[in-house]
């Protein structure tokens, strides 16, 4: 069986891009990732038809060697239809999620947020220190104060988001503690 290299390369690129997108936290991006990845997989299925450029039609008088196998195309067609349905569903889910929480993030992982903010602040500090190297720390007092505000706001957010019963297993496995009140979170969101 001859396999078109172009199809395979496209399939690999699409699945890679889709795979990366699936790993993001926004549900819409995950959806785009699933669609892109699905297209890549569909191309992969299509590659099993063999040589390109032959019609998938069998009619009297045509040799079997001159026909592309139509079955993988039927499989792809099925997969495309199913992807369409799932797309509609996930879009609805992302919309509902943004209605409820103000974002379509798959999960508001507070621990992740904390780590990211810490890294951001450390980077900013290093930059400022480099900038004001000659003048000493007093020259960038305002910026430091602003950073402290952000850290404090984040801590407050963590405390609210966690709302922990103090149970380690609940924290790890998420035994559905009550969701943090939505409007407050939006007002105090440091970003």
């Amino acid at each position: 069986m001859t396999v078109s290299l172009t199809l395979l390369v496209c399939a690999v690129v699409l699945t890679s891009v889709g795979g990366i997108l699936i790993h993001t936290r926004s549900l819409t991006r995950v959806l785009v990732g699933v669609i892109v990845c699905g297209n890549g997989v569909n191309l992969f299925v299509l590659a099993t038809t063999g040589r390109a450029g032959v019609p998938p039609l069998l009619y009297p008088g045509v040799a079997h060697a001159r026909v592309t196998d139509p079955l993988p195309q039927a499989i792809v067609l099925t997969a495309v239809v199913i992807t369409l349905a799932t797309t509609a569903f996930v879009l609805a889910m992302a919309y509902r999620s943004s209605q409820l929480t103000g974002s379509d993030f798959v999960q508001d992982d507070v621990e992740d947020r904390r780590v990211v903010l810490r890294a951001e602040i450390a980077a900013e500090r290093a930059e400022l220190r480099e900038l004001h190297r000659d003048e000493g720390p007093s020259a960038w007092r305002d910026e430091r104060r602003e950073q402290r505000h952000r850290i404090r706001a984040e801590r407050a957010f963590q405390a609210r988001a966690r709302d922990a019963p103090g149970d380690l297993w609940d924290d790890i496995l998420g035994a559905d503690p009550r969701p943090p009140a939505t409007p407050e979170r939006q007002e105090n969101d440091p970003r």
């Binding site: 992969f44 099993t48 499989i75």
Partner: peptide, 10 residues
């Protein structure tokens, strides 16, 4: 699963 089907079919 689709990839598996494709490989099996090929």
């Amino acid at each position: 699963f689709l990839v598996g089907i494709a490989v099996a079919y090929a």
